[in-house]
Amino acid sequence: MRWALGARTALKRVPLDMLTACFDRRSGMTHLLAAPAPELLAALAAGPADIALLLARMGIADADAEERAGLEAHLAALEAAGLVVRA
């Protein structure tokens, strides 16, 4: 499964505390993102990627199956929010 940022997604980020407020200029929607969502979006900025490549971009060497499944779930949630698409 490969993921990519939605075309012309244009995020403006303001870190608050544990959450980051994000405004997507394309949709006009505001998202409040908790880790690892901002990190995933940043990792996708370099182009479409699968989980393995995303982990590499984020500098995470040792993720087990459960953690990878968690990341897939986060990406699915970002997809529902309109921020990422399947590539």
């Binding site: 939605g6 394309r26 949709s27 006009g28 929607m29 309109g82 698409v85």
Partner: peptide, 16 residues
């Protein structure tokens, strides 16, 4: 202008 942005986003969501 804001209404237009929201409307185009709905179109994109439907397209996806």
């Amino acid at each position: 202008g804001e209404g237009r942005r929201a409307a185009l986003w709905e179109a994109e969501a439907a397209r996806r």
